[in-house]
């Protein structure tokens, strides 16, 4: 059986719930941050920079660098590595400052 993080710690997660990310449904395990949920779905970038529009995602993973910003339920500039996903969250890629949508 291939190794996975969940098998490594013998996890028995509570039932998953769904959130939407740019109109696509993602399954999330309870307690995961939005960044963790996106990584689980194979998504590694969810912001474009204000200047040259480069893609960004998690960098520091602990809330220091502000690279992983995105829009959650209409609020821009949320750090995906800190904010825990909640059932029904509407999560969007953030373009630039996130205030132009």
């Amino acid at each position: 059986m291939p190794r996975t993080p969940l098998r490594l710690v013998r996890a028995r997660p509570e039932p998953s719930f769904t959130v939407t990310f740019d109109d696509r449904e993602l399954a999330v395990l309870p307690g995961q941050t939005i960044a963790a949920a996106l990584w689980s779905a194979g998504v590694v970038s969810w912001r474009t920079t204000r200047g040259s529009g480069e893609p960004r995602g998690v960098f520091c993973g602990i809330g220091v660098c502000f690279d992983c910003l995105l829009t959650v339920n209409g609020r821009p500039n949320q750090r995906a590595c800190l904010v825990r996903a909640e059932p029904g969250d509407v999560i969007r890629t953030q373009e630039g400052t996130g205030h132009h949508e």
Partner: peptide, 14 residues
């Protein structure tokens, strides 16, 4: 450290 933090808390890999 970020890769480790995401693994420890979210049980995910980059």
């Amino acid at each position: 450290g970020g890769a480790q933090a995401m693994l420890k808390s979210g049980l995910v890999l980059p």
